[in-house]
Design a protein around this nucleic acid. Structure first.
Lengths: 188, 188, 188, 188
DNA sequence: CACTAACCGAGACGGTACGTCCAGTCTTATA
DNA sequence: TATAAGACTGGACGTACCGTCTCGGTTAGTG
């Protein structure tokens, strides 16, 4: 009965937003500009995403690897992969900025909070799943939540605060340090 | 030789900014308003801090506990204090937001970067000192930088990303998890 | 196709600006204040007039008497009316100031120049029309452009430079002096 | 008894101001900049001239030709010279702008008014003297004040309002038009 | 020769308006 | 109902320049 939304617009907007976000970061993203560049009215953007921030979250969710954690039988190896995957979602400098910006935005705007939380949770879970598997199998020892905090926390910390590199090397070292020499020795 | 800057203005501005920051957060801070409330011209603020963000960094630095890490002889205890201290700098919700906001701002503005980095480094060092002491004394084992990442990272992660509480309980648990049951057992 | 500009805003802004201009002169006019008093955002003002100066020109143009020169058959009388009309557009002290201010502003800002020129031309033409009519009818003799310069010039000179009064008396005397005793004798 | 003012500073400031005024006009003149360029403190400028405007008036007065009106025996010729001299003080575009700017400034600031008036009067007098001589000698007829208004007014009008050229040609034509064909015929 | 008043450079300061930028909402006409 | 176009509110930002002030230091002429 009514005119349907144009699905292509959604995709085009996300693509354009993603590109700009990559190049010029969070506040280089100007809604008006995105709309114009896509050949769409600003209204059209706002009909889909109530806020610039919501759009940004969408972009991030859109680009998520959707990693089903591997289960190779070797927990430390799996954990290292999971951590490395997390690193790669935070690696290019603009992405770090984006995450920082979102953290800020979500503490400003409660409506955004849940959206952003969902995204963070998804990323955390990818690691948590492996950790919990190890803990229940007895391969790892300790409080799994704390272990996840140490792993994921260290990665975010480097990404957001110190700005240091997040390469495979670091992932390996971090996992080894966390799961402890005893456990790691047999597998490294 | 020229008229010196009025040091009281600096202090008054920082104080006012700090108060507002605590109450209304980052973007509740309006430079114009601060100036007026202190009875100072806006230009006077901008003469000292080229940007609102620079002012915010100053406020944070200013409010820093300036923690000379205690040395009680018990490394785990000292470490727990250091971590707890870090937690307390990140605890009230507006502070978390501030940190997030600054992380974002500093990746936007290179001129701000170094200022912010100095602040982050100071906080990290307070923990690092204790860790390194433990490592050289043989009380702790492992790569001290990684250990610091795990501790400090977990704390920031909770503050910025998950938003969970950062109480003394958590500090204790975290330290115990990181330094490992072996080491911790004797001291907890 | 797009939302049209609100014509009432234009009018209200001009009216408010005109009032302020009359009372407090050129730099008593504060764009921000005008906007607020009209209940309009500052941007709305700047969308229409790129500059405070442009707005001022508009006000002046807007308040123009739109004089269709009278044709009474008596050229000297018509000329006197035209000159008197010109005088009245320059009479209240704030208006003189305004004209001076605009003359200055338009030589600063080329973009403003043409706008202002149009306004000046309009005023000059009201006199020029009558002069030219007289010259072609043979009632007046001489170069009509020069005659207009003498009449209009004298009026502006008094208004802007000497600041002397511009009453009906002066208009009459001036016209008589310019068209010469011969022509004027029969009509005064 | 006290240290005397440095007379060279006065001259240097006037020179610098004059240069800037010529190149970039009234509000291209920034007191701070002048001071710095001369190697003098802003205070030193303000000690001598209470206001930017006062400084500008000084510059103008300083550059005045100080024309003692010639008396060649031929009134029309002398008048033409006087008018031409006036034209030349108003000729380069920046000078016109300056005059406009001063007219505006002096109607803003009463303290400046008298200074500026003195300057204007001086220029008018150079023409008035000749006109009055002619009138008392019977060579010219009419109200001398009005005649001066017509001459001087036309020149200012062109300079400030229409922006047309002010060459010798125009001076001649204007004088001829004003003193009337009768008088002019014998001399042109 | 010492003293002292005014001068000087440097630059901080109060004040005030400017014009700009963007987010998000609203209004029209059209598809 | 969706859409393009773009006007609108709202609010802070950082900038610019004026004229005043406060320093430390210099430089006459007077006692």
């Amino acid at each position: 009965m009514a005119r349907p939304r144009n699905a292509e617009s959604d995709a085009a907007i996300l693509a354009a937003a993603s590109a700009v976000l990559g190049e010029r970061g969070y506040d280089g993203l100007i809604v008006d500009e995105i709309a114009r560049s896509v050949g769409v009215a600003k209204t059209t953007v706002y009909r889909r995403w109530p806020t610039k921030n919501h759009l940004v979250v969408s972009v991030l969710e859109d680009g998520e690897p959707d990693a089903a954690a591997a289960d190779s039988g070797d927990d430390v190896r799996d954990l290292t992969s999971a951590v490395a995957a997390l690193c790669s979602t935070l690696d290019p400098a603009p992405m770090r900025r984006l995450v920082a910006e979102l953290a800020a935005a979500s503490s400003r705007d409660p409506a955004l909070r849940s959206e952003v939380d969902r995204l963070w949770a998804r990323r955390r879970d990818a690691v948590a799943v492996v950790v919990e598997r190890g803990v229940s199998a007895g391969t790892l020892s300790g409080d799994s939540a704390l272990i996840v905090d140490q792993l994921v926390g260290a990665v975010y910390y480097r990404a957001l605060i110190t700005g240091e590199t997040l390469d495979a090397e670091y992932s390996r070292g971090l996992v080894r340090a966390v799961v402890g020499p005893r456990d790691a020795e047999g597998t490294a």
